[in-house]
Computed example of a mutant assay.
Amino acid sequence: MDLLQKLDETNSLTKEEIVRLLKNMTAEKKEKLFDLALKTRTRYYGNRVFMRGLIEISNYCRRNCLYCGIRGMNANAERYRLSESEILECCQDGYNLGYRTFVLQSGEDMWYTKEILVGLVTRIKQLFPDAAVTLSIGERDIATYDALYKAGADRFLLRHETASRELYEKLHPGMSYDDRMGILRKLKQIGYQVGAGFMVGLPGQKEEHLAEDLLFLKEFQPEMIGIGPFIPHSETPLKEEKGGTVEDTLVLVAFSRLLVPEALIPATTALGTLSPTGREQALMAGANVVMPNLTPTLFREKYDLYENKICTGDEPAHCRSCIERRINSTGSIVDLGRGDNVRFIPEKISPDKMIGCN
């Protein structure tokens, strides 16, 4: 059986089969792969693309990941931190624009204690009870994750970055591969909709490593999968390295859609940074989420995980209308609802209020 046909029919391949496909990905095979991924997305979610309001609450970080522009050792980073009132104002702006999911993202900024974060999540859910709250704030202790879930947080994004222990330890000094994987599993046990994911084009990354990433996603079955290209930053140890490509990233997005059909997969801003049509191409390769920025424009350029990020000067209303036009250009329609994973019916909300679960 043709390997792409097998992937489509079984949602599964061996590591050796994945490596073989990745190493022999002709233009014809890519076209077929993207077509199969889009059909799979349509089967589970129709032609809807979910829009989330992204709020980058802080660029302080205690970590020193070799690829990241906001790493703690970057003395040239201009740091900022949003107050609770500023965050709530962003949420209000987003709510007025129709968003019903807010994604709060930051470096690992320990100024936001468990108490501060619980208070923030509680307030957001009080003000916007029909909206979902997604957190992407890095590694914390389990008691904090548990308290945040009880306060109303619905989802947690924590990319595994790479399923290769060797690569992980090389790229993340002072961090533990086992801790990362253990936290992801604990987040699922707590009840979050969990997002994992990785970068494409990392220094030293081979097809075998990417196959390990895909097999981890297949085994872990995250509700969300974030995949983006590695983009070198001039203030990091990897500044001279070659970056990842849109083309390679799209292949991994499509693979992920076929291996984890129910996943919510963003068309990332990083793809749009590398190509004017990067996000549209991702949607046509099986992605079904976009995250327009609600962060105050004064701070957006400072949240520079990578350089030359697009849309840093656009007002929220402009971002929303611009991305909506891009989504429509791919033949999809915008869904501003909560946009929960189709297999996930959290106890916190009644099924009749779920979006995408009928």
Rank of each mutant, 00 (worst) to 15 (best):
D2H: 09
K6M: 01
L7K: 07
K15D: 06
A27Y: 08
L33M: 03
F34L: 01
R41C: 00
F50V: 13
G53L: 09
I57Q: 03
R62L: 00
L66F: 01
I70E: 04
G72L: 00
A75C: 04
N76A: 10
R79H: 13
E86M: 10
Y95M: 08
Q105V: 14
G107M: 11
D109V: 05
Y112P: 08
T122L: 14
F128I: 13
A131C: 12
L135R: 12
S136E: 14
I137V: 15
R140L: 05
T144D: 03
A153W: 09
L157R: 05
L158H: 04
A163T: 09
Y168R: 01
M175F: 00
Y177F: 13
D179W: 04
I183F: 06
R185A: 04
K186H: 09
Y192W: 04
P203I: 03
E212I: 07
E219D: 13
M224R: 11
E240H: 14
E241W: 08
V246P: 01
R257G: 02
P261T: 01
A270N: 02
G272E: 07
T273Q: 10
L274D: 02
S275C: 06
P276K: 12
Q281W: 13
A282Y: 08
A287K: 05
V289E: 02
V290I: 15
N293W: 08
T297K: 14
L305P: 00
E307N: 05
N308L: 15
T312K: 08
G313V: 11
A317N: 09
H318M: 10
H318C: 06
E324Y: 07
N328D: 09
G331A: 12
V334A: 15
L336M: 15
D340W: 13
V342L: 06
E347P: 09
S350R: 13
M354T: 04
